[in-house]
């Protein structure tokens, strides 16, 4: 095979993959700028009126705002816990490490609906249902393994001698953690944090169980809208979601580009 035909095949495959992967996004993007009144692709003319409509829709704006609160609460709750747990699981010889690792897999074996109902009961018992923040706490609990894994993968790559070197330089345990261990696992912490933010932003099932009419989050609000009628404004909301995810990825790239500095050599 000549190199030029190899190239042709290579780029054709790359092209096909890119198109299939981005197809849903492209269709949604197209549908969201239609000037017609029904969701359609290719769009029927061009207009931004559906974006205007969602921007004006009070219940959507409030739902987006609640989702942002949920995501923020989720990150604030999960990050410190997940970071410490992720480091502890890899750096220190804990008893029952395997047991803990299996326990961390539980959220993926217990269906979400199960843990969602569980939390609904517990939160109901505590009388905190009807608030927005418990949804964030719930998201933190169910998605915690993601932060732990992302931090542990950074921590596993950390040279144990770095911490010994810090102690040798006169650093106590807290100082070693603060000045050496934490900066070294920062890429994992940032990745985990952004992941938690996006996951909480899009979490549907648990939100559905834990919210009522006053506390609906964005995914639940969209679901409610679909049940009535599918209009192009839903495509516009989807685009907003895609943009939020893109911002997260962009931030990740900007921040974890720091990783080069954090790896020696």
């Amino acid at each position: 095979m000549t190199s030029s035909s190899q190239k042709l095949i290579f780029w054709t495959l790359v092209g096909i993959s890119i198109i299939t992967l981005s197809m849903p996004t492209i269709i949604v993007l197209g549908a969201s700028v239609t000037s017609g009144n029904i969701i359609a692709f290719p769009p029927d003319g061009f207009s931004l009126k559906w974006y205007e409509k969602i921007a004006m829709a009070r219940e959507l704006r409030l739902a987006l705002w609640r989702s942002l609160i949920v995501s923020t609460v989720c990150v604030i709750v999960s990050l410190p816990v997940g970071t410490v747990a992720g480091i502890a699981l890899t750096r220190y010889r804990l008893k029952f490490v395997n047991l803990i690792n299996i326990y961390l897999l539980l959220p993926f074996t217990v269906p979400l609906i199960g843990s969602g109902i569980g939390m609904m009961l517990v939160f109901g018992e505590w009388g905190i249902l009807g608030n927005v923040w418990p949804v964030g706490v719930a998201c933190a609990v169910i998605n915690l393994p993601f932060v732990i894994w992302s931090v542990s993968s950074s921590a596993a790559a950390l040279d144990r001698d770095l911490e010994l070197a810090a102690e040798n330089c006169g650093a106590g345990r807290m100082e070693t953690f603060w000045y050496v261990t934490l900066p070294a696992v920062m890429p994992g912490v940032i990745t985990g944090g952004l992941l938690m933010f996006v996951l909480a932003m899009t979490e549907f099932l648990v939100s559905l169980l834990l919210t009522d009419a006053r506390t609906v989050t964005l995914p639940v609000q969209i679901y409610n809208n679909i049940r009535s009628i599918i209009t192009p404004d839903l495509a516009a909301i989807s685009v907003v979601f895609v943009v939020i995810a893109l911002i997260a990825v962009w931030l990740l790239d900007r921040l974890v580009g720091l990783e080069i500095f954090l790896k020696s050599k």
Binding site: D159, D161, L164, A166, Y179, P183, K263, S264
Partner: peptide, 20 residues
């Protein structure tokens, strides 16, 4: 005495410079 209370400087086999 723990390592941080001993007045000892050490150069490690893999140096262990703080990369950040």
């Amino acid at each position: 005495d723990p390592p941080n209370r001993r007045s000892i400087g050490m150069v490690f086999q893999k140096l262990a410079l703080f990369p950040h």
